[in-house]
């Protein structure tokens, strides 16, 4: 379903972001992408939703290859992906419902189906009662749920989440994480970048760890040593979040 083959990514100013990355994600899998900031997590996610192309190797997502994908194919692919960020990316001047609806409207979904889909997605994330609230009236956890509802609206085969709990307190983190698990349980694959080691340790999901742009650990490759790393990550010196941010 998702396959990275010997992928390398280099930025003209900040140098090597990824090198020799090879892994696969199967249908319905839950995968943690961990590593210190600047290790290349966000870059990998960007390659997955084809916001960027690798300098070397191939990224293959549900039949679309980074080697020859057209703009139209990428747009079509993204309609089958759900993407969630640390900063929620909600439109402040629209209600929760309108934010979710937006994803359908701008992709030309048939009008008749929109209302039902939006209310189903909001119910799924537990926010049916807050449909008419504006983002500023919602807590961080609730805002992230709206973003997740928006990501789910097109029944994605995979949910790509970049530090979805990074801005949330403990309780909201647990709630959002549980929501992601539920989504995964219903068959949607989840790829979640995080450096919340507690979260990683407490669950038994596959973990891919990056450091300095290299894949240093994949629990699927060495199932016996399925260790969530014990030590906190060493913040990489070359860490440069700006190059990674979208």
């Amino acid at each position: 379903m998702i396959r990275l083959t010997d992928v390398a990514k280099e930025y003209p100013r900040s140098g090597v972001a990824l090198a020799q990355i090879t892994f696969e994600v199967r249908k319905g899998e839950f995968v943690f992408l961990t590593g210190p900031s600047g290790s290349g997590k966000t870059t990998i996610l960007k390659l997955l939703y084809m916001d960027d192309k690798p300098n070397q190797g191939e990224v293959w997502v549900n039949g679309v290859s980074s080697l020859n994908a057209s703009g139209r194919e990428i747009s079509r692919l993204r309609r089958r992906l759900g993407i969630v960020f640390q900063d929620f990316r909600l439109l402040e001047d629209r209600t929760a419902e309108a934010n979710v609806r937006f994803a359908l409207e701008v992709t030309g979904a048939p009008k008749a189906t929109i209302r039902a889909k939006v209310s189903r997605a909001l119910t799924q994330v537990g926010l049916a009662s807050k449909a008419t609230s504006y983002p500023r009236e919602l807590s961080g956890g609730e805002q992230q749920r709206v973003a997740i509802a928006r990501a789910l609206i097109n029944d994605p085969f995979v949910l790509i989440a970049d530090e979805p709990t990074g801005n949330l307190d403990e309780r909201a983190t647990r709630g959002v994480f549980q929501l992601l698990r539920d989504i995964n349980a219903s068959g949607t694959a989840v790829i979640m970048a995080t450096h919340d080691l507690d979260l990683v340790r407490r669950s038994n999901y596959r973990t891919i760890e990056l450091n300095h742009g290299r894949l240093v650990f994949d629990s699927a490759e060495s199932p016996l040593s399925a260790r969530p790393p014990d030590e906190p990550f060493q913040e990489s010196e070359a860490a440069n979040d700006t190059q990674e941010s979208v």
Binding site: G71, R76, R78, L81, R89, L91, F102, A103, T107
Partner: peptide, 16 residues
């Protein structure tokens, strides 16, 4: 900018 970047992420075409 934000609206446009979200449009891109959810799969709106360039032409749209």
């Amino acid at each position: 900018a934000k609206e446009i970047s979200i449009m891109r992420l959810v799969g709106a075409t360039d032409m749209f």
